[in-house]
Design a protein around this nucleic acid. Structure first.
Length: 655
DNA sequence: CTTAGGG
DNA sequence: CCCTAAG
């Protein structure tokens, strides 16, 4: 009696990191340095950019066009050797914790099946998916050493026309932390094919949890009413096509994604025992060895609602604009709707929890208790990319990729946090650290920090920290693809969320604060927040700006990301300077950029300097987003005025 | 911490 | 944007 489980890891029904906190005072950078180093002290979530990084390094590519699919595939087949990024990963104590190793791929792959798999980025609707899937047989989770690749290939072959499995579509369970009920609240799991319980019931349960219709298909991609039990254990592949809901409003550019369907943690997830999952995996692995496990697909219809917000003052960031515009444009064009879907899908994918089942652990049972950890979410530092609107999607992807790689720069490493504090001694065992099966999940956390060493040198050391270095990954070619997309999507979504709140008119003297959220992102990261915990109205996967040390850490030695001033910001700056003069940048900051955490008064001062310069040079010599002549003239005016009239006692005028 | 400027 | 001397 093989008990299969369907783990809906991809549907953020979990609790996410703590919600964003209030902002701190708005004083220069000093604060950044003082920021707390708490990453996700909350649910012990594994906020891990490493995840992304890992995916970047090893994941499959997302294809823009079906035609590129094969090319990418081949490319990946020959050049992609997951082992390159083999996990230098920790072996905290006796627990070996590989994250991106090919060795355990067999185990990993098997986990793929029971995980929510959102096939590709191009899936637009069920029909399409079905059609695509009907062309060939369902991809089957492979076995053996190359299972991952096999799966990937097969999935690609199967879902080729609809893209390839994307980021975060797999579940990984990191056997690092002890959790009595690791899955609880985090993964929707359904007992399938268990004893008298029919799969149909399981599906029904899933449907109930997802609050949406679920179509179960067999290998022939034909819908089957009931999920049949298989002796070798069933593997269900869950796809959740995202539907777009057309919105008439053409004016609004910003969009807000609202995927209610993703909020599933409301419902009480069926209790699941880790062991059960492991068993499932292991059993599946064992049995699937000789007989390829059936891969079935369950499609869960989901609606992604796009609600546009009102005005969108010239956006704060170029990418923001570009992205939104792209989205908008594509949105308007029926034929391009897919692009939107792509972005959405990516976002969706990125939100997918990443867990991993570590079957090897089973045998480690030498007296000590098993410690299992499941990664539910990860944090991705903010990325900014500038692109002209004329840039192609590919350009965008590459740019994002570059940004991501740049971010990863010197490498990142994972730091274990126990009760909010870094665990310095990496040789200590979990037991010694008090990480036992009874440890409260929330007491354990992780954070990313820049690798102290320039590159991967630390990898050689026994440094149990996971070190990710882009040195190990050939840049764009194949990893770039979908990961960049995912990141881009993340950013895009974040942007939209910002805009949603940015209803203030920068020109307004009093309320010329630029969108809080958008600027707050400076603090560093956005957390893919599976679900804020409650309310169905809450976007299941809100991106939560998080202020954390990590961002600081990542900033170490690195030049700050370039964030061109938007016209709106320039406007705000000019307005403020007109009023305060050119010698009180602190006040200007407070007055017009109080919420823009990433704009220091020095930045404003510098910007003013460049503005003055810009205003003086010939228009054709200017670069970047063109600043309205009107503004430039005001710059000249204000500049000359204030240089003449020493900053009198204008102090009263402000306040 | 702020300013003011050069790099 | 960064770096820094100065105040």
């Amino acid at each position: 009696m093989v008990a299969s489980k369907v783990l809906f890891g991809g549907f953020p029904g979990y609790d996410g990191p703590a919600p964003p906190r209030a902002m701190r005072s708005s004083r220069g950078r000093g604060e950044a340095a003082r920021r707390q180093s708490v990453v996700v002290p909350h649910k012990g979530r594994f906020e891990l950019l490493a995840t992304v990084a890992g995916r970047i390094l090893q994941d499959t590519g997302v294809n823009e066009g079906q035609d590129k699919l094969k090319a990418n595939e081949q490319e990946s087949l020959k050049e992609n050797s997951p082992s390159e990024i083999d996990s230098q990963v920790s072996s905290v104590g006796s627990v070996t914790n590989h994250i991106f190793t090919d060795k355990r791929q067999s185990a990993t792959v098997l986990c793929v099946a029971p995980t929510v798999v959102v096939p590709g980025q191009l899936v637009m609707n069920e029909e399409e998916l079905q059609v695509a899937g009907a062309k060939k047989n369902e991809g089957v989770v492979g076995q053996g050493e190359n299972s991952f690749e096999n799966f990937r290939s097969e999935a690609a072959a199967t879902l080729g026309s609809v893209g390839i499995i994307g980021l975060g579509n797999m579940e990984f369970e990191l056997p690092l932390m002890t959790q009595e009920k690791p899955m609880e609240k985090n993964v929707i799991s359904v007992e399938c094919c268990k004893e008298n319980r029919g799969c149909s019931e399981a599906i029904g349960e899933v449907m109930a949890m997802l609050d949406g219709p679920v179509t179960v298909m067999n290998e022939a991609s034909s819908s089957i009413p009931e999920f049949q039990s298989s002796e070798s254990g069933d593997f269900m592949k869950l796809a959740s096509p995202i539907y777009l809901q057309e919105d008439k409003d053409e004016e609004n550019v910003s969009m807000e994604m609202e995927d209610k369907g993703i909020v599933v943690n409301e419902k009480t997830p069926p209790s699941v025992a880790t062991s059960g999952c492991s068993k499932f995996v292991s059993s599946g692995l064992a049995e699937g060895h000789n007989s390829r496990p059936m891969l079935k697909r369950v499609m869960c219809k989901r609606d992604v609602k796009f609600s546009r917000t009102k005005k969108m003052n010239s956006s704060q960031h170029l990418l923001q604009e570009t992205m939104t515009k792209k989205l908008k444009n594509s949105y308007s064009k029926a034929s391009d709707a897919q692009k939107v879907a792509k972005a959405v899908k990516c976002t969706h994918l990125s939100k997918t929890s990443i867990k991993r089942h570590h079957t090897d652990m089973e045998s480690t049972d030498s007296g000590s208790s098993q410690v299992t950890l499941s990664i539910k979410s990860f944090t991705v530092p903010e990325l900014f990319v500038d692109l002209p609107e004329s840039a192609s999607i590919l350009n965008l992807k590459r740019a994002v990729m570059e940004a991501a790689m740049n971010l990863l720069g010197g490498g990142l490493r994972v730091r274990v946090l126990l009760q909010g504090k870094k665990v310095p001694d990496e040789g200590v065992t979990l037991l010694q650290m008090g990480i036992s099966p009874n440890t409260k999940p929330e007491s354990l956390g992780f954070m990313l920090e820049p690798s102290p060493l320039p590159t991967s040198s630390s990898a050689t050391a026994e440094d149990p920290l996971l070190v990710l270095s882009h040195a190990a990954s050939p840049p764009l070619p194949r990893y770039a693809n979908h990961c960049s997309w995912a990141l881009a999507a993340i950013h895009a979504q974040m942007d939209t969320s910002c805009q949603a709140k940015n209803e203030l008119d920068p020109t307004s003297t009093v309320t010329s604060n630029i969108s809080q959220e958008s600027f707050e992102g400076e603090s560093g990261a956005i957390v893919l927040h599976p679900s804020m915990g409650t309310g169905d109205n809450l976007p299941g996967l809100a991106l939560v700006p998080v202020r954390q040390k990590m961002s600081c850490a990542l900033e170490v030695g690195k030049r700050r990301m370039r964030r061109p001033f938007s016209v709106a910001e320039v406007e705000a700056l000019v307005h403020a300077v007109e009023k305060l003069g050119t010698g009180r940048w602190r006040d200007v900051k407070l007055r017009a950029f109080d919420q823009a955490k990433h704009r220091t008064y020095v930045d404003l001062k510098d910007k003013w300097k460049t503005l003055v310069h810009t205003a003086r040079i010939a228009p054709h010599q200017r670069r970047g987003e063109p600043v309205p002549q009107e503004l430039l003239e005001r710059v000249i005016q204000a500049h000359s005025y204030w240089t003449a009239h020493a900053a009198k006692q204008q102090a009263e005028l402000d306040s």
